[in-house]
């Protein structure tokens, strides 16, 4: 592993792999006990309290229109922070932390599904795992589905 300016955490949801810039990741935890919140978007599974801060849990499958899959206690939650907004994305596994040369990142093209384009900024072709879609945390945090529940 090489320490560079651009380290990414590789997440696995279903059969897809996603990358998140490591500076956006606050912590990775097991799925905690959470509270369902009524009258919210269906991509928000619930909210929970970790060390005095409130986080909402987002199901990326709903947002990028992947087949739905019920959550279980093996799921992990990757806690992200953008500006003052804390939220967690539910994933199946955290595969690894890798350094990617920015030159290897490619712009999204027509091979990427349309529903991904809203939240994916670039993608990277991995030798073993195939396409790794780099998530745009800013786009995620500003998504109308999530932004409406921002705490302050």
């Amino acid at each position: 592993m090489e320490i560079a300016g651009n380290s990414y955490s590789i997440l696995n949801i279903g059969d897809k792999y996603f990358g998140v810039e490591i500076f956006g990741v606050r912590e990775i935890i097991q799925l905690p006990k959470f509270t369902k919140v009524p009258n919210t978007h269906k991509s928000i599974i619930g909210v929970f309290n970790l060390r005095g801060e409130i986080y909402s849990i987002i199901d990326l499958r709903v947002l990028i229109e992947m087949p739905a899959n019920p959550v279980n206690n093996k799921n992990l939650v990757v806690l992200l922070r953008y500006e003052s907004l804390n939220f967690g994305v539910i994933v199946d596994k955290v595969v690894d932390i890798v350094d990617i040369d920015p030159a290897d990142l490619q712009q999204p093209d027509r091979d990427i599904p349309v529903s991904y384009k809203k939240f994916v900024s670039k993608y990277y072709k991995h030798d073993k795992l195939g396409n790794i879609y780099i998530l745009n945390i800013a786009a995620l945090s500003s998504a109308e589905e999530i932004a409406g529940y921002r705490y302050r």
Binding site: I3, S9, I22, F23, E27, I28, Q30, V94, I97
Partner: peptide, 18 residues
């Protein structure tokens, strides 16, 4: 859990840079 902790620790280490 240890694995998760190590993952978090490696994230922290990455963030700490050099």
């Amino acid at each position: 859990r240890t694995n998760l902790l190590a993952l978090n620790a490696s994230i922290e280490a990455a963030r700490a840079g050099e």
